[in-house]
């Protein structure tokens, strides 16, 4: 149990380092002002602590089928609600971690992990490829049209 936690901490620290390096390059490329290194490090550590709590909560409630990702969102959501005393400081720290910078490592891992499925994928017929794309479009625009209608009725848009 303890070893598992240490492993998770190590892995999260590596991921945190990737996010910071990516963010520095990303900001330099588009000419955005760089956050001071110290502030960025505090920011990412704050984020990583919540990630660890999310992992522990998921482990503690295996029967509740709530993924760690959703736990992480939930905790951060609660800490940053306007009437929470934590909101100001928490948003100030996490604000030094760019949203887009957190996405790049995920997709790099995802791309590599698909490598194991390539042979299986070659067996899928072209018909399923077309169907999948229509399923994507149907799901997306189905929801979008209903949302458009309801938001209009509510007067939000």
């Amino acid at each position: 149990m303890q070893n598992k936690t240490i492993d998770q901490v190590k892995l999260m620290l590596v991921i945190g380092a990737m996010i910071l390096v990516g963010q520095k390059i990303g900001r330099t490329v588009i000419g955005k002002e760089l956050a001071p290194l110290g502030a960025s490090v505090i920011g990412i550590l704050t984020v990583l602590v919540i990630c660890m709590v999310a992992l522990k909560l998921k482990g503690a409630f295996p029967k509740v089928k709530f993924p760690a990702f959703a736990w992480a969102t939930m905790i951060a959501l609660i800490l940053s609600m306007p009437f929470m005393p934590t909101a100001k400081l928490f948003l100030q720290y996490t604000g030094n971690v760019d949203f887009l910078a957190t996405t790049t490592p995920i997709l790099a891992f995802a791309g590599i992990s698909v490598g194991t499925k390539l042979t299986q994928l070659k067996k899928i017929s072209w018909k399923l490829v077309i169907i999948a794309i229509v399923v994507f479009i149907g799901t997306f625009f189905g929801s979008a049209l209903v949302a458009q209608l309801v938001l209009k009725i509510q007067g939000i848009i």
Partner: peptide, 13 residues
Amino acid sequence: LPLGVKYGTLVGP
């Protein structure tokens, strides 16, 4: 997970 946290900070406020 870090992305999940960032999403939370967007929903909260």
